[in-house]
Structure formats: structure tokens, C-alpha cells
Design a protein around this nucleic acid. Sequence first.
RNA 1: GGUCUGUUCGUCUAACGGUUAGGACACCAGAUUUUCAUUCUGGUAAUAGGGGUUCGAUUCCCCUACGGACUACCA
Length: 505
Amino acid sequence: MKARVRFAPSPTGALHIGGIRTALYNFLLARQSGGTMILRIEDTDQNRYVSGAEEYIVESLAWAGIQIDEGVGVGGPHAPYRQSERKHIYKEYIQKLIGTGNAYYAFDTEADLEAMRHATPNAQYDHVTRMQMKNSLSLPPAEVSRRMAAGEPHVIRLLIPAQEEIRLADLIRGDVHVQSALLDDKVLMKSDGMPTYHLANVVDDYLMKITHVIRGEEWLPSAPHHVLLYRFFGWENEMPQFAHLPLLLKPDGNGKLSKRDADRMGFPIFPLNWTDPKTGEVAKGFREHGYLPEAMINFLALLGWNPGTEQEVFSMDALIHAFSLDRVGKAGAKFDIKKAQWFNEHYLRVKSSDTLAAYLLDELKNENIPCTLERANQIVIALKERVTFPQEFWEHGKFFFIAPVVFDEAAVAKKWTTEAVQVLEPYKEAIRNISTPSAEQAKLLLEGIATENGIKPGQVLAALRISLTGGTSGPDLMQTIEILGGEETSRRIQFAIQKLPITKK
RNA sequence: GGUCUGUUCGUCUAACGGUUAGGACACCAGAUUUUCAUUCUGGUAAUAGGGGUUCGAUUCCCCUACGGACUACCA
């Protein structure tokens, strides 16, 4: 069966990483069934609207490789896909509910509601309290008409049936039963004429012929209201299947993953950089942090879902193939960025060196350092196994372009020996004459000179590395010399010999 | 507080009611390596607790504990 699914975020800020996962699961189901992925923007709250958020959502999904078949940005047979532009539709449908007596007008002020909530413990707008409130159920019809005619502000509420069990078959959680007496008369239409989530969502899902509602677990408590709405509209047979996804939890302790945690622990929580329009503060995205979209997707897919096999690495296509809603877990998943990094390393290593070289070349451009593709390739190959993020090619490879001027003191104290310098002196002279030594040549030359002096090559290597890179770690030394070239190698040794005192005999 | 919901190594998770409870990340150790890293090999490490049902419970039921979500004219 071809699934028609939707991702329906609110443009209230940057799209959270959990939102990407929700979108991903929707997308996977759509693709796998040859169905349709819809993007609908739920902008019914004008107070929380943040400009730029919608563009951000679209861009984030595109970067993640989650393609939209229908909806905002691409159009489709059920346009418009922005709820603020569908106001008239909700107006029409809410009237049906008024007509069937499943919804009613309420005139209560904020103070009225406040008073009701504080009157008794656990009070809510429901069968217990509604007749004490100011609404078209409790007020005489004449007064209701009078208030309506006077244009008094009002909302429209859902009339929850007195006593019955509402059953919800959730694809992930199984049967969930709720007593209607415990449900509140949710507002469906706000006093500004905008629908609430509950109304707009159900109406749109129906009109857009959605087959599966895959959304976060935070919606589970209001799902019974939605079931009731389908029934009151007479759409029970067209009601989509529900799948409420477990939440993404913070890495340490408990609770929902928040931006605060991410900031505290130094990892991103938004797919792309996001500039808060109010504060101007920039939150770094996964992309800017150096995560590859395929790594992020792979990581996210496995946060809550597993294939039932021992396979861990999945391309988007492989995910589309393997995904199934019934292998989505019920428990919340803690967000462990280490695993995401591991995936990033993995995907970085399977990339072509030309692709990796492009990352380095980009950084070099920013630094105004010229470099050929060929040389960038060499560097990137030497560094490939030691980076987690693309920008590290520059960070770890800086010394290829900028000769060290300061040296690791501890290393110098230990390794900058008489013997080493004894070999480095003639080595720098010899290597200077070979403009492009191969790693093999560089090695043979060093071994030759060391042996002539009766010194083991191993006693020189650390010192050589110090002179070339300033430190003690890095890619293969001979490879480094090959990339540096004979002249530059010689110059660096020369500089180090001049600058560094021998502290150890 | 109320409602809903969840609980297997530190983390993500696997296990028709019968397994030495498996894998991956992380961690530790060994090997390889001219350094660091990589790679390879090995290792530590879990069924929240208590009752049932059963010949046998990680698995089914109940209770307890501990989480989480929701409890707005926000989504």
C-alpha cells in the first residue's frame, strides 16, 4: 500500500534534530511503499511565528536528503500546504461540528479559566466543570445569540462524550485505551479565528488523504481527541494509522534533549546554523560542525529503530529498503554524540580523496593559501585515518603549509639529542638537493646517513618530526617529507637546529 | 497531583517462553606501526525490585520503584 505521510512542523524556530528523525521515518515509509512525502507547515499560532523558520526547515530537509514530493515549496493537488492559508477550510469544517452538536461556543475569559483551574484540584474544562462555565451549553440560547451578535470573543470547544472508552491502535505502542471522562474539552478554534493544532491537523490529514501519522510521543495524550474528531466528522474509515515515536533524551541524566544540553556538552542540535532573530545568537548546526548528512541520517535512523540484523551502516537507500515501523522501539533514546562521530569518521573514510581534498582546498581558500589539487590530495590521503570532521584536514595539516616556529618543549627536552642533530645536519644538506623526494628515498637517505654515523635511525625520527612539524604526532614522517619536498624539509631542519638547544646528551 | 507511557551492558540495541543474554559505540588490554592515529585481536560490562503463571521466564500477568510526555485560545 502506498503510504501518504506528512511531516508537519511549526515554523517557531530552528528545526530540532528530533524533528529530522521524525521527518526521516516518514520519508522512509513513503519511499519504501512508493508513496508520497508531504511537507505541511503548521503555522496556526501567529504569536510564535518566527520568520525564516520555514526556509530553514526546507533547507534542512534538503541537506539531510529528505525529499519532499508534495507540499510547501513544491506544491501539489491539496495546496495550499501552509495552514495559515487554509483558514477558510477549518471554518467550514468546524461548523459541521457545531451542527452535529459535537462542538460548542465558549466565552470564558482568561480569568474565568484561571478561577476554574484553581477551584478544585485537577480541574479542567470537562464534563465536571463545563456547566459552570460561560458557554453555549450552560448559557440560555438567547444569551448565546446576544453575545454572538455583539461580537464577543469566543472559542469553539470539542464536546467530549460523557462516558466511554476511546481506543487508539498505535503502530508502535499497541492498543491505548482512555476513558473519555478524563479528557478535556479542547479548544478547536481560537478567538482569533485560527484553528488549534487538533482541528487543523485532523482536517488536513483527512483532506490530504494521509495514511500514516508518524509523530513524536508528545502527541500521544491528545491522540484520543483526534480519534474523536475523526469520528465526529464521520471519517472513521479514512482515519490514518498512528505511530507515536519515542523521544530523544539528553545524554546524561534524564529528560528530553534540549538545546541547553547540546550547548553544555558541545554538540549541535540543529541541522544547520541557526541565527536567533531576536538575540542574533548563532547556534552551530550539524553541517557547520562538520557532520556529513549521511552520517547524521545513519545515526538518527538507529536512534529508536533497528533492522533486526547486525548491520549498522546504512545508506539512505538501504534504510528505505530495511525500514519498518514495527521495529521502532518504545523507549526514549539518549543522544550519544560519540556514535554520531564514529559514523562521521566512517563516511569520511569512504569518500574519494578528490572530495576530501575539496574540503581542504576550501579551508585553504579562507586562509589565502594556494595549493594544487594534487597536493591537497596527498595531504588528505595522509590525514584521512585521523580526522573526524573535514575541517580537521586543515587543523591537522596546517604544518604542511606553515613551518613551525615554536616546538613542543617536553618533546624537545627528551628527543632533541646530540645524536639526532649529528644525523640531521648532513641529512638536511643531502635532502636539499632532491627537490621531490619520494617517501622511500627520504627513508633510505636517512637510514644511510644514520648508519654512517653509527646511530640507529630510530634515535633520529622523533627529532626529525619535531623539526618538521613542531610536535610529536602526525602522519607518516617519510610521507610528510615527500609532501613537504626536499628544500622545505631542509629549511625546517636548519631552523630547528639553529633554534633548539641540546638539553640531553 | 492527575492521565498516558516507558524500563536489557555507561550509550544505541538484539534475543517464536528454552541462548554461555548477541552486536555496535565508548572504555580497557595486547599486537602491528619510526610518533600519534588507523587497523587487528581480546576483555570488562546488562535483563530495576518483588510476587505470580509455567517443567522453564529478558520475554506473559500483577504490584512497587524509578524515568518520560502531557496536563494552554503552543505545537
